[in-house]
């Protein structure tokens, strides 16, 4: 990073420059700078929802593209996510107060036998950022936890994640149980995780395989729009 950038005073940037700077700071995982920029935008009377979507989510979308293209790797994405999380921590209570739009509700969790939650946590964060309410079941979830939660939470979407080839078949057990209970079509089922692919997603009866958090958000929005159209 150049000296010029190090000396940057965020408060002196106009809104457009500041948002662009936030993209850079998210990309570089600079959590303190994101914290400061979010507070500046709030002081300038930006709506919390606009800060979230136009600055943070858009910035993370760029991070997601470069991760997909092999320019960024997991550590950089985690640092970026950490920075976004810091910004979201400021915005979350304000979003509740200001009644930001809710696009739908998702129950998400890592499947039984699997304790890996990095991807799942990223998806949960991006979904929240995009305006979904997220109920996170955490790791190592048996089928009954998923089924109980989607019913109890009146979820629109069930998200399942697995990192291991040994645990990913468990997603089919969950979907088959939903079919047996006659509730499969009441929910959008999205699956993801490093060893999965589109074929696997189709074969187990999910609605879609999402290769990364940004794709999960776009896919969820698309399915929710279809759901609304069906109801209309």
């Amino acid at each position: 990073m150049s000296d010029e950038e190090e000396d940057l005073i965020l408060d002196e940037l106009d809104d457009e420059e500041l948002v662009l700077q936030m993209y850079d700071d998210l990309y570089d995982g600079m959590a303190d700078e994101i914290d400061e920029a979010v507070r500046i935008l709030l002081k300038r009377e930006w709506q919390p929802y606009d800060i979230l979507t136009k600055a943070l989510v858009e910035g993370m979308r760029i991070v997601g593209i470069d991760f997909r293209d092999g320019i960024l790797f997991v550590p950089e994405v985690l640092l970026a996510a950490g920075a976004m999380k810091k910004g979201m921590a400021i915005l979350k209570p304000l979003l509740i107060e200001t009644g930001a739009p809710q696009l739908g509700k998702m129950v998400i969790g890592t499947v039984k036998g699997d304790i890996h939650d990095i991807g799942k946590n990223l998806v949960a964060m991006m979904m929240e950022g995009a305006g979904f309410e997220v109920f996170d079941l955490g790791i190592n979830n048996p089928v009954e936890d998923y089924i109980d939660a989607i019913k109890r939470e009146k979820a629109d979407i069930l998200g399942m994640s697995a990192l291991l080839t040994t645990t990913m078949p468990y997603m089919k057990i969950v979907i088959d149980t939903m079919v047996e209970q006659g509730i499969r079509d009441d929910y959008i089922v999205l699956v993801g995780g490093a060893p999965l692919n589109e074929e696997f997603g189709k074969a187990i009866g999910s609605d879609a395989y999402c290769r990364d958090a940004a794709v999960a958000v776009e896919t969820a929005k698309e399915f929710m729009a279809r759901k609304h159209n069906q109801r209309a």
Partner: peptide, 16 residues
């Protein structure tokens, strides 16, 4: 895993 440069990520990876 980037832990040489960012050891603070350790528990995100290995906390479970």
């Amino acid at each position: 895993m980037g832990l040489d440069k960012h050891p603070e990520l350790r528990d995100i990876y290995f906390g479970n």
